[in-house]
Amino acid sequence: MTGLVHDSVDSLAALIPDGAKVAIPADYTGIAMGLTRAMIRRGVRDLYLVCLPTCGLQGDMLIGAGAVKTIETSAVTLGEFGGAPRFQAAVGDGSLTIKDATCPAIHAGIQAGQKGIPYMPLRGMIGSDVLASRDDWKVMQNPFSDGEDPIVLLPAIKPDFALIHAKKADRHGNIYIGLRREVMALAGASRQTLVTVEEIVDGNLLRDDATATGTLPALYVGGVAEAKQGAWPLAFWEEYATDEAHMTSYVAAARSPEGFKAYLDEFVTGGGARAAAAE
């Protein structure tokens, strides 16, 4: 390990203690699946998972592996591959505490965290069961309105870690995030951001405007490791597409606890050739 640059995803995963509040982005942002498998290998437990604002395979696998105590999310879905089987099972048997939200409410909580303020007001939600189910959200009168104007206040969300996969990093730990600007708020709100990248490059991404405008500065970063195809089997930006055959086999396996365990044995924890090759 040199500075922020780690030699492996397992070395990054070792930074995350049991019980941590961990934020993960939506699938379009870039998902650190290699790091997620390393977390499951390490056997992390009792996570409070915050999804900005939804999650998919990453959340389903962490839940299935027993790593998650509480999830705060606007949705968990495998998209065109259907519902998330381990999530559905854990909600059904009560082993997972779910804090249902709506997408902009999680964005607002993260933005409050980014700005270091206690809460953010947001329109909508009043009269919904989403709001009714959340005793940590409050409705207040808009103090700037002469008439009656109730508005919802969302408390700041301040994760211990944000986990992302990005296209490249330099050796200083600056991360190229391109168009995925939600990472700025996510990293600002989180104590540190752990990053996997397709490649680590020479030079300094902050020196050139063309890359600097799409760069998360290293000051937010707790560690970075190279992970080629690090979002696999998910799609990553315009770089590569979803491994459809693998997703289909995951969905079939994860329908039962036994099938899911067999999947983990083969691709994550088994130490077999396929798990090693995957990283």
Partner: peptide
Amino acid sequence: LVGVGDYPQAKIRWPGSFGSAYLYYL
């Protein structure tokens, strides 16, 4: 968009509310 049956331990659980609890108002 959440599920069928009693909340939170729904008989059938769907993905979740997404942005609906906001966009429907605005």
